[in-house]
């Protein structure tokens, strides 16, 4: 896996579907191409939704880390 450093952390904790991907899609234009952000969410649906969102929009989910009470998603802007 390529190494990366997130440029910032996006706190989407407590927000249920569809807000995590809605907010993520609004964040993309604010990122530079190649930037990685770390998304913090508590919505279990995000584990399936972020990869599905990335696949459709052409972005990349580098990694999803699950911890008790927190899901961390690492998203890279590809285009």
């Amino acid at each position: 896996m390529e190494s990366y450093t997130p440029v910032r952390v996006l706190n989407y904790k407590g927000l249920p579907c569809p807000m995590p991907i809605v907010k993520m899609s609004q964040e993309i234009p604010k990122m530079a191409i190649g930037d990685v952000v770390e998304v913090h969410t508590t919505d279990p649906g995000s584990i399936a939704d972020f990869p599905a969102w990335a696949k459709t929009t052409g972005q990349t989910v580098l990694e999803i880390k699950q911890e008790p009470g927190l899901i961390r998603v690492f998203v890279k802007r590809q285009k």
Binding site: P18, I21, V22, Q26, W53, T57
Partner: peptide, 12 residues
């Protein structure tokens, strides 16, 4: 509305 906003987020 959830489907609509979700789809918009997916770039649709």
């Amino acid at each position: 509305m959830i489907i609509a906003t979700g789809a918009a987020a997916m770039g649709m």
